[in-house]
């Protein structure tokens, strides 16, 4: 893959929560169509890294670009400065995010969840949004649940709905923040299947997850984080050859 294929570029990113130094000058390139799996113990900074990419968290130093454009800030004298709200919102619209706790809007049906942002943000008309929404729900296996409220769905169904909602914005990249950690074991598989199909369709994805099955079946790269830095970065096909931190991690948790 050549340089022009880089979709997400993270360079020397530092993040502090008050005194706490969470990201220590982190670098990461993700190429178009690449599926990168982020692993590491809780507190290693995986979640924070994902959340800085779509500017749910601010950064104090370094730069992050998606498709060559900064998200949520512009650069002044080499330092990131917060951008205007509409600029941030427009940039976020092209970056899909799936949360550990699904965060479906519970006062809306599944279909309403999926069509809300396309209508509000992209300006689609309701009929068009509904057609696309139903198609996406079919794609994640929830065609028959379009008019059901989230509280009446299982965790796995909610998470598949949340993936459909993110896809409705036609994002260039998808970020998954521990998408199966809050799920019952029996519903994890159905979510991973949807994610694997997405990966096979060529979506650029960063997935914070310890699901080694997903890593083996769908990931291209495994990136191990520890204390806010990347300590190992391997092609997924070669994780079993790891002699470093990834091997330790897999032995400890699987």
């Amino acid at each position: 893959m050549n340089k022009s294929d880089v979709v997400i570029e993270v360079r020397g990113v530092h993040k502090w929560y008050g005194e706490l130094h969470v990201l220590h000058g982190l670098d990461l390139d993700v190429h178009r169509g690449e599926v990168v799996c982020l692993i590491g113990t809780s507190g290693s900074g995986k979640s924070t890294l994902l959340r800085t990419i779509n500017h749910l968290e601010t950064i104090q130093e370094g730069r992050i670009t998606v498709n060559g454009r900064t998200v949520g800030y512009r650069e002044e004298g080499g330092k990131p400065v917060a951008a205007r709200e509409d600029v941030i919102a427009a940039a976020r619209a092209g970056i899909g995010m799936v949360f550990q706790n699904f965060n479906l809007f519970w006062h809306m049906t599944l279909l309403q969840n999926v069509i809300e942002a396309p209508i509000q943000v992209l300006g689609l008309n309701a009929a068009e949004a509904r057609d696309r929404g139903r198609e996406l729900l079919k794609r994640v296996g929830l065609a028959d649940k379009a008019d059901v409220y989230p509280r009446k769905l299982s965790g796995g169904q909610q998470q598949r709905g949340a993936i459909a909602r993110a896809l409705a914005m036609r994002p260039d990249v998808m970020l998954f923040d521990e998408p199966t950690s809050a799920l019952d074991p029996e519903t994890i598989g159905e979510v991973l299947t949807v994610m694997e199909e997405l990966a096979a369709d060529g979506m650029t994805m960063i997935v914070a997850s310890h699901e080694m099955g997903f890593v083996r079946r769908a990931a291209h790269r495994v990136v191990m984080m520890e204390n806010g830095v990347i300590v190992e970065d391997l092609p997924a096909a070669r994780v079993d050859e790891s002699t470093g931190r990834i091997r330790d991690f897999i032995q400890k948790f699987h």
Binding site: N54, L56, E85, D86, A89, A90, A91, R92, A93, G94, I95, G96, M97, F99, N103, L104, F105, E116, A117, Q120, V121, A162, R165, A166, M169
Partner: peptide
């Protein structure tokens, strides 16, 4: 956060 991530103002 979900609304923000979808680009809503």
């Amino acid at each position: 956060e979900a609304a923000k991530a979808l680009g809503m103002k």
